[in-house]
């Protein structure tokens, strides 16, 4: 039995080794045509995505893949499954494959110095996509491309303030202040930090600052499950006081809506709900009257990324910060907008 097993194993390994050899050949021929093609415009891009945390992220991935195809760029795509170490591994393998340019969506802000230094030493330009990084040396990347999270946070507060005035809402606990609860994104992620900062700054700067009070703020890790669980806890602690829910992304809001319904309250009426991203699910919820507004965070960054990448490789000068366009979608336009939404 053991002998047979050993035999099987060795056959298996042989096949594998052969497979690896084949792969290497393909890879080397690929990179060969890539480097030879720099004049001939065949560019290879290594792209490390965080993972499929939400519909939004999926749209982001799709946009990058589609744009690469349209631009005739050979895309090496890697899914990090929500782990930084996987991303670092992916970037290292891009470097050893000798891709022309690397783009990645950093899952957290810190810890990128070493691996980006390796990329720089290999003379491969790096574009940071969608989220921010903190580096000791800004020359480690050529451009940051993405959404303006600070502006999104500000838009959230501006919309709330206007909506509360327009609807002539009164605080549910009969006091003088509207109580806000916040579901934050992944702790340490640039988006969560900026969105919160943008929101708080806008609130502090507003003449109506005294009308609002942040009652509680906890992370729901950008997922439905945690959003639901944390909202459940908020409701138990301050059930009849909460006026407004601000969720750092739509998915947490969707989870929270279920928790609010389970508590016997009406989401969208008893508690005004605003979130950021603009995925289809939240439009569906807005049409049902269960959510009030979403501030778009545009995931269709592919075309801009490819354009920037080409400019970089052609030696043109690019801005260090490049932003995509974003809008605000309240519930009354949801029905009209939904069919047009791509994500």
């Amino acid at each position: 039995m053991r002998k047979i097993l050993a035999l099987l194993m060795s056959v298996f390994m042989l096949v594998f080794a052969a497979g690896c050899g084949g792969g290497d050949q393909a890879a080397s021929s690929g990179s060969g045509s890539g480097s030879g093609g720099k004049g001939g415009k065949e560019i290879t891009m290594g792209f490390s995505q965080i993972g499929a945390e939400s519909e939004w992220r999926t749209a982001n991935t799709e946009s990058v893949k589609q744009a690469a195809k349209d631009a005739g760029i050979n895309l090496q795509f890697s899914d990090a499954q929500q782990k930084q170490e996987n991303q670092i591994k992916a970037i290292r393998s891009f470097i050893s494959q000798g891709v022309d340019i690397i783009a990645f969506v950093p899952i957290v802000e810190t810890g990128w110095d070493t691996v980006l230094k390796e990329a720089k030493d290999a003379k491969i330009p790096v574009i940071v996509v969608d989220r921010d990084v903190k580096l000791s040396d800004d020359s480690l990347y050529v451009a940051k491309l993405g959404t303006d999270s600070l502006a999104e946070g500000k838009k959230v507060f501006d919309w709330i303030d206007e909506y509360m005035k327009k609807q002539n809402k009164k605080p549910r606990d009969g006091g003088s202040q509207f109580n806000v609860v916040v579901l934050e994104g992944t702790v340490g992620s640039s988006v969560a930090i900026r969105r919160q900062e943008g929101f708080k700054n806008a609130m502090a700067a507003s003449p109506d600052a005294s009308k609002y009070n942040i009652l509680a703020s906890q992370t729901g890790e950008f997922t439905r499950q945690k959003g639901q669980e944390v909202m459940e806890s908020f409701l138990k602690s301050y059930g009849d006081k909460i006026d407004i829910l601000f969720a750092h992304n739509d998915d947490m809001a969707l989870g929270a809506i279920q928790a609010i319904e389970a508590a016997g309250l009406k989401p969208g009426k008893d508690i005004t709900i605003i979130s950021i991203d603009g995925v289809k699910g939240i439009f569906q919820a807005m049409i049902e009257g269960k959510a009030n507004c979403t501030v778009e965070c545009n995931p269709l960054q592919g075309p801009l990324l490819m354009e920037t990448a080409k400019k970089v490789l052609n030696g043109e000068k690019v801005e260090k910060l490049v932003y995509v366009d974003e809008g605000v979608f309240p519930a009354d336009v949801a029905e009209k907008t939904l069919p047009e939404r791509k994500y």
Partner: peptide
């Protein structure tokens, strides 16, 4: 234990 932490406001991380 998890529910306690949420109730006390200890963040998930």
């Amino acid at each position: 234990l998890t529910t306690t932490m949420y109730a006390l406001g200890v963040s998930a991380d």
